[in-house]
Amino acid sequence: MQEIIRAENVRKVFRLSAKQRKLEHSTTGKKVALDGLSFTAYEGEIYGLLGPNGAGKTTMLRILSTLIRADGGDAYVAGKSVTREPEAVRASIGFLTSELKLEDFFTPAYLFEFFGRLHGLSAEQIAARKGELFPRFGIDSFAEVKVGDLSTGMKQKVSLVISIIHDPAVIIFDEPTNGLDVLTARVVTDFLRELKGQGKSIIVSTHIFSLVEKLCDRVGIIIGGKMAAEGTLAEVTGGEDLEEVFFEIYKKAVGEV
């Protein structure tokens, strides 16, 4: 199996504001988000980062997408270092999270073209991708409607197609189904399977057990910024229910739930 994403001992510490310090009962003024996190994802599979809120999933994915920098360690996406070659990394990934918003003022068609150009695609390539992706997600019917006038589900579909406009080899989705209705969530999970079928490598973060069980080939359980367990779904669960296994691991790592 070919390695596609490798995180090596990644550390990330956030400085807390005075207000946050009080809320977190912290005396040091620092919060360790990632405490030497390492994992490897292989080509052509779906890797799931599972963990509670605040475990460091989003931080790790933001480091992989080069939006933020690691304080220690390094990560490689398709052989490129996120710290040394951020532009090359960004060119090879599609990153989707509910935090990445589209400008309300523009239409999906305009934004698709705009982001296509930023990814260095030619007008013909953009038109071809549009012809493929817009009908696939039913965006045709609202391609000329301003994003501000679209429903949450429609917006998510537009964000999804824009994130993969350049047909990236690696796809990073942060909480891909969060806040979506069941229909749109289904469209997203079906599409992830389809991408896997095309040989893409996918990494998703989630706290939804069923999503991991349904989709992921391998899973890494993050607790408190550290990898608590990693392996194929079968290796991690040992045939038991993932939710039960998770709480066992969590108890061991943190104490009581």
Binding site: L67, R90, E99, L100, E103, F115
Partner: peptide, 15 residues
């Protein structure tokens, strides 16, 4: 753009 979260969308492109 920062407030609305649209700048991050730009920052994940290779620009």
């Amino acid at each position: 753009e920062k407030e609305r979260g649209t700048i991050a969308t730009l920052l994940v492109t290779p620009i």
